[in-house]
Every structure is written in C-alpha cells, then in structure tokens.
C-alpha cells in the first residue's frame, strides 16, 4: 500500500497562552492539491510553517513519506529540500540576480554542479517565459515576475511537496493571474501542494480538496465542488458569504 506523502496528526501549537492550532489531523496523498481556507488569524500560515519546520510546535506528529519529522535526529535541512515553500512577500535575495537566486540552494544544499543547475534553471525560466530576465535583479522585476521566480526557486530543489502561503496577497490584481496560472499548471503536472489562499475561484479550479479552518481547528474538509456550493457547516457558509455580493435594488 502506498503511504500518504504527508500525514499530520493532532498538531498542537500555542504562543504563550493562545492556542493557535488545536490538534489538527489530515493526510495528503501524492498529487493532492489541498487548499486551506479560513478567516485571517485562523492558523493557516502557522500550519504551513510547522510543516516546514519554521515554527516549533508543542505536540503532534508530522510524517513525510511515512517518516516522522518530530523524531530525534531528523535533519530539517534535508526535509526542507523536499518541501518547497513560497511566501507572500516573495523573499527573493535582493543582492543576487534571478539566475543566482535559482542556483544558490541547488548548488550549496544539494551540491549540484554549476552546469547541471544552470540547465535546470534555464529550462524552468524558459517554461514561464522569463528566460530574458535571467540576469535581472529582483528589484527590476514586477511583483508577478518576482513571485514566479520565487516559485521556480523552490522548484529548483525538485520538491515532493510545495507550500504556498498567500502568494498572491501582495500582488496587484493584474499580476495575480500569471502567478495562479503557473500554480494551476503545476497542479496539472501532478505536483502535491498545500495552498493557503483567499482566491476562492482559483481554489475551486485548482483544489482536489478544501480544508476549511477556523480558530485553529479544521471545521470541514470537502471536495471543492461540495465546499463551494453546499458547504456542510454554518461557519463555512458564513465565510464564503464574504466573497459573495448580492446586487441590491436601487432605491430610485
């Protein structure tokens, strides 16, 4: 039997007295695209950060390909090579050009040769139409270009799982599309992803499953079709109403 790529069991995390994650459990099969939705401050980002070891947690187990990441002796530097993460604020390295941004981790963390890494970078850049930006510096790129480069930078490591933390939240509307298109393409190619987003239409198109969170708990997990049309819980209904506008009758 094939093990799940990711298993999260009873994950609990608190800052001082405030409990942010109240015992979350879910699994992710290879090729799944899980969209995590929920109001601000419900713990979505914290969940991603825990999976990538950027945030310590109090209890619970996270398993990647069946391997317990909370066990002693687990090297997070190795785990993170298999788990790519993209941030809201891009976080490209401003002192390096696009190519060097892409090459740094494969060269230093994976020990790839320069020619091999460059070839990988070139083909990725080619694919998203940014090959001519190879020698550009991050500050010379638009927000959408930066975020696409940030996604490629994570892909350079050939990760098994990609985490997207509100990656379009800082972008102008006309830039959002190009980033979402790239993510959709990755999903189609079979990449396993966890996406935290407020782009509900995109979520509906990309997700294989929607996990709705509120106040540190999983409120419901549904297929996107069910979640967006007949959400099971009132809290999800309330949440989805935020994105829905009704045309009101004009007074006169």
């Amino acid at each position: 039997m094939d093990v799940n790529l990711l298993e999260v069991e009873q994950l609990r995390k608190s800052y001082k007295d405030a409990e942010v994650l109240k015992g979350l459990s879910f699994t992710l099969a290879r090729g799944d695209v899980l969209v995590v939705a929920g109001p601000s401050g419900c713990g979505k980002s914290t969940l991603l950060r825990c999976i990538n070891g950027l945030e310590p947690f109090q209890s619970g187990v996270i398993r990647l390909s069946g391997r317990d990441l909370t066990a002693p002796g687990v090297k997070w530097t190795e785990v993170r090579q298999k788990v790519g993460m993209v941030f809201q604020s891009y976080e490209l390295f401003p002192h390096m050009n696009v190519l060097d941004n892409l090459l740094l981790a494969p060269r230093k963390a994976q020990g790839l040769s320069k020619s091999e890494a460059s070839a990988r970078a070139a083909s990725l850049l080619e694919r998203v139409g940014l090959k001519d930006k190879m020698k550009s510096f991050p500050r010379e790129l638009s927000g959408g270009q930066k975020q696409r480069v940030a996604i490629l930078r994570a892909l350079m490591m050939k990760p098994e799982l990609m985490l997207f933390d509100e990656v379009t939240a800082a972008l102008d509307p006309e830039m959002v599309r190009e980033v979402l298109d790239l993510m959709l393409e990755l999903a189609t190619d079979g990449m396993t992803m966890i996406i935290v987003t407020h782009e509900m239409q995109f979520a509906q198109a990309a997700a294989s499953r929607v996990l709705f969170m509120d106040e540190g708990e999983i409120v419901e997990t549904s297929s996107p079709d069910v979640f967006f049309t007949f959400p099971k819980t009132d809290r999800a209904k309330q949440f989805l109403n935020i994105f829905h506008f009704e045309k009101k009758e004009r007074r006169h």
């Binding site: 950027l54 993170r80 941030f87 390295f93 740094l104 981790a105 963390a109 490591m157």
Partner: peptide
C-alpha cells in the same frame, strides 16, 4: 528581514550557509 533567513532555510540551506550567502552580504 527575518523572512529572508526563513526563505533561505526553507530551501534547505543550513544556518551557516544562510548567514554566509544571504544575510551577511545584505
């Protein structure tokens, strides 16, 4: 910014590599 360090570490770089290649030059 702290997020620079996090993004470097999220790529699998060690703390030392992050310091040398990402944090110190900036």
């Amino acid at each position: 910014d702290k997020a620079q360090r996090e993004s470097a570490e999220s790529l699998g770089l060690t703390k030392f590599q992050t310091a040398i290649y990402v944090v110190l030059p900036q």
